[in-house]
Write a protein that binds this DNA or RNA. Structure first.
Length: 576
DNA sequence: GCCGTTTTCGGCCCGACTGTTTTCAGTCG
């Protein structure tokens, strides 16, 4: 069984947790955590890097020792260091860390003093009131633990970006109505357009004496106040989402925004640059000694370490600082660059609106073109089209285009890629279309070799235009296909066809790291909404967020092209 | 455990809030 990056990341995370409970050197622990984060967010498979004999110590934060351990994990699924730790401490101890209020020190105390190693033992001890007697514990902590365990509260519940937006945006509007409030910005991973967010970080500037903290904790949706202070408060909303509000002076706004936007790894890297210049960078500004020298804007913070402004979506310490220093930051694609949508359904299959409604709504958005791409017959639950029904729709679209609506309707299909790599409709009907969007909707669990072969074979079809939602993942629900994405992307380049970045908030597929890969290989990406109703066109903003996380510029995105250019590219994709 | 325009040793980002304390450890972001 192949070892994935996520598996290696997990091993290092567990080592870090166990070392922390043991009270090891915090910097050693950090080294494991940094490595874990790095590996998880890496676009390329570590396993493949090893196969190709690439030097792992080239990766930032990976030295000789960790490289050795990575090799060990890839070969055996685990490593000796971890197994040794697991013998010294009950491995279930790490699950206790997920309980709010419990960190490594308290978990260590629980284990040393009361021999507590499992959640069940912890619950029993808390119930008997044994915990409040321990040093640095008390009745309050005991109650918190009991309540958290009874409600099965965990620290790491994450929300899909679009779900979080449903709660964050009304909160923002509410805060803006509070007297004295100047600016309200949602920072954190939300601002970085990460596909899921763990909590919402809100930054507020207001004039002195504004009741912002009181009004915030009184907000109708607040279920519980977790902490409240003059500059920072944390609440939990009824939906379970945690919200942090920070109140900063106007003069610190830029430094605070930069700091609270993160990511953590990016911030640490920036601060380290500051240190090298004998500057201290915190959320209040940039300091030389005790003298505050700047920090009103984010630009001023970047300038203090000789960098240009780096867009929030890029701030993951994945090379953006080096790119900025070299003057090679991309000019990221913006929503206004988009000229049309290339993946749209109607009620002919599983969509909710008629063809005419979908086309009119696209026109209302100012689009130059829209491609209608229904499911093919194989997807019976969606009433997928057979050749006959598809031809009927083709005629319908031709008639619509004759009316000169001010938008061009492109004829397409979202055709299934069958298990053997054949397409679900015959070439004879595909040849009548402007574009053929191809997708895997079945047999998600094929082994990597066969899955990759399946997709590559499909791409051999001369009518193959765009690979829809390439990894097939559904965020937090279904993992990605086992697919050698580099091979797929290189094949697309060779064939002159394209990859989709499906903007649906449950998909956001192509993943950011693969967008970067596509860009590096020179393969254009279509950012499409997969709209099943007129409202779904809104998803484009999430697709753009993801595209920006993947460093895509307008020139890297297929549907920023004008109609004439697009049609030329679509024809060229047909091969000879 | 990693890393080097101050360095192969000695650093490693920085601050707010809570609860248990009576000056601060622990947790969190």
């Amino acid at each position: 069984m192949a070892v994935h990056n996520a598996d290696i990341a997990k091993v290092f995370e567990e080592i870090a947790d166990l070392l922390e409970i043991q009270g090891e050197n915090p910097f050693r622990i950090r080294a494991y955590r940094n490595a874990s984060r790095l590996i998880e967010g890496l676009g390329v498979s570590i396993g493949e890097m090893i196969e190709k004999n690439e030097d792992l110590t080239e990766l930032p934060g990976i030295g000789k020792d960790l490289a050795g351990k990575i090799n060990e994990v890839v070969a055996t699924g685990t490593c000796e260091a971890l197994e040794k730790l697991r013998k010294q401490l009950p491995p279930t101890l790490t699950t206790l860390l997920r309980i709010p209020g419990l960190g490594p020190k308290r978990v260590q105390t629980l284990y040393r003093e009361l021999d507590i190693g499992t959640p069940e033992q912890l619950y029993a001890a808390a119930h008997e009131g044994k915990i409040s007697a321990l040093p640095h514990f008390g009745e309050k902590i005991e109650t918190t633990i009991l309540q958290a365990m009874e409600k099965h509260v965990e620290k790491e519940a994450r929300f899909k970006l679009a779900t979080a937006a449903q709660y964050a945006e009304p909160l923002k509007s509410y805060l803006e109505t509070i007297p004295g409030v100047n600016r309200v910005v949602i920072a954190g991973s939300y601002r970085r357009a990460k596909e899921t967010v763990g909590d919402i970080d809100v930054l507020v500037t207001a004039r002195r004496g504004s009741p912002v903290m009181d009004r915030f904790t009184e907000y109708d949706e607040v279920e519980q106040i977790l902490s409240k202070g003059p500059t920072r408060s944390t609440v939990k909303l009824r939906c379970g989402l945690q919200v942090d509000l920070r109140f900063v002076p106007q003069a610190s706004f830029g430094a605070a925004l930069h700091y609270f936007t993160g990511s953590k790894a990016h911030n640490i890297a920036i601060r380290r640059l500051g240190q090298q210049k004998r500057l201290k960078i915190n959320e209040y500004g940039v300091f030389r000694g005790t003298k505050r020298i700047t920090g009103e804007t984010e630009e001023s913070v970047f300038r203090s370490v000789d960098l240009p402004f780096i867009p929030p979506e890029m701030r993951e310490n994945r090379g953006e600082i080096e790119a900025a220093r070299a003057g090679k930051l991309p000019r990221l694609v913006e929503i206004g660059d988009i000229r049309g949508d290339l993946h749209v359904h109607t009620n002919a299959t599983d969509g909710h609106n008629t063809l005419k409604e979908m086309v009119e709504a696209a026109k209302m958005r100012g689009y130059e073109y829209v491609a209608i791409t229904e499911h093919s017959r194989r997807v019976t639950v969606a009433k997928g089209l057979d050749p006959q029904r598809l031809r009927k729709q083709i005629d319908e679209i031709d008639r619509l285009n004759e009316k000169r609506l001010g938008i061009t309707v492109l004829k397409g299909i979202e055709v299934d890629i069958l298990e053997d790599g054949k397409l679900d409709l015959p070439d004879s009907v595909l040849s009548e279309l402007d574009l053929v969007v191809c997708a895997v909707h079945s047999k998600f669990d094929l082994p990597k070799g066969r899955q990759t072969e399946r997709v590559l074979r499909a791409m051999d079809n001369r009518y193959f235009t765009i690979l829809a939602h390439p990894t097939g993942r559904l965020i937090q629900e279904r993992g990605p296909l086992e697919l050698d994405m580099l091979k797929v992307i290189r094949k697309a380049r060779e064939r002159g066809c394209f990859l989709e970045l499906n903007a649906h908030p449950e998909r956001l597929d192509l993943l950011d790291v693969y967008c970067q890969m596509a860009r590096d290989e020179g393969v254009a990406v279509a950012v499409s909404t997969d709209a099943h109703s007129t409202r779904d066109y809104d998803y484009m903003k999430y697709g753009i967020g993801q595209a920006r996380r993947g460093w895509l510029e307008a020139k890297d995105v297929l549907n920023t092209k004008g109609l004439a250019d697009l049609e030329r590219l679509l024809k060229a994709a047909r091969g000879a």
